[in-house]
Nucleic acid binder design. Structure first.
Length: 211
DNA sequence: TGCCAGGCCCTCTTTAGGGCCTT
């Protein structure tokens, strides 16, 4: 059974290119419909959080001061993930911080692994959703609450539940047994109307028919 | 709930602009 790692960062801002740093990471490891592992840690990158970020995330400067160094946390996170493919909500954001924080470590950790994005997939699959914020999609699907929004583990848990819903819906609507990460990546890039054809082509390309 | 960025997506588009989404 293929594993997928659902990841969420809390950060000091929106752009590592502008000097922003990660403050917290959470990873939920899923296998099929089961959560098989969790990793979560605050991290101290030696930066100060703005009052806005303290309020937005609930993470304080005092909490960051007491947290382990960012390089230690990221090294541990990379060991936890290994080569498992990644998923995030608005993955372009988390991908940038994943790459930027790991690049600081050096040591040959892959900086740009494939990411699937629950936001892009939701835009394809749920045109009636209205909003594609994580919280709005959780409400749309009546997913269970996982704690305080905008903390890494709570958001990673919700994103993992959303991913489970997405995979269930693809299985049901397209008659397939499995929804591998590669199929998610393919679907998030195709036009909404092209999803059925993309599912057929994905399994056809791999030499076995969809169930 | 703001500013910074970047990618996606829609439309009053494509020789562009603006909203959404992430912190």
């Amino acid at each position: 059974m293929h594993r997928i790692a659902v990841i969420d960062f809390e950060t000091t801002g929106l752009s590592p290119a502008m000097g922003d740093r990660a403050t917290e990471i959470a990873i939920v490891l899923v296998e099929g419909t089961q959560v098989v592992g969790r990793f979560q840690s605050l991290m101290n990158a030696g930066v100060r959080l703005s009052p806005f970020i303290e309020d937005y995330t609930g993470i304080s400067n005092e909490m960051i001061r007491a947290a382990p160094p960012a390089d230690e946390v990221m090294a541990e996170a990379a060991r936890f993930v290994r080569d498992v493919p990644l998923v995030a909500h608005n993955a372009a954001f988390d991908r940038r911080f994943w790459a930027a924080e790991l690049e600081r470590l050096g040591g040959g950790v892959p900086l740009n692994p494939p990411f699937a994005c629950t936001m892009l997939l939701s835009r394809r699959l749920y045109p009636q959703a209205g909003s594609y914020r994580l919280g709005a999609l959780a409400a749309f699907h009546a997913l269970p609450s996982a704690g305080r929004a905008h903390r890494a583990m709570a958001d990673a848990e919700v994103a993992a539940a959303l991913l489970g819903r997405i995979r269930d819906d693809i299985r049901r609507d397209h008659g397939v047994d499995e929804v591998p990460h590669g199929l998610l990546v393919r679907l998030q890039r195709c036009q909404r109307q092209a999803v059925p054809k993309a599912v057929r082509e994905y399994f056809g390309d791999r030499g076995h028919a969809a169930a």
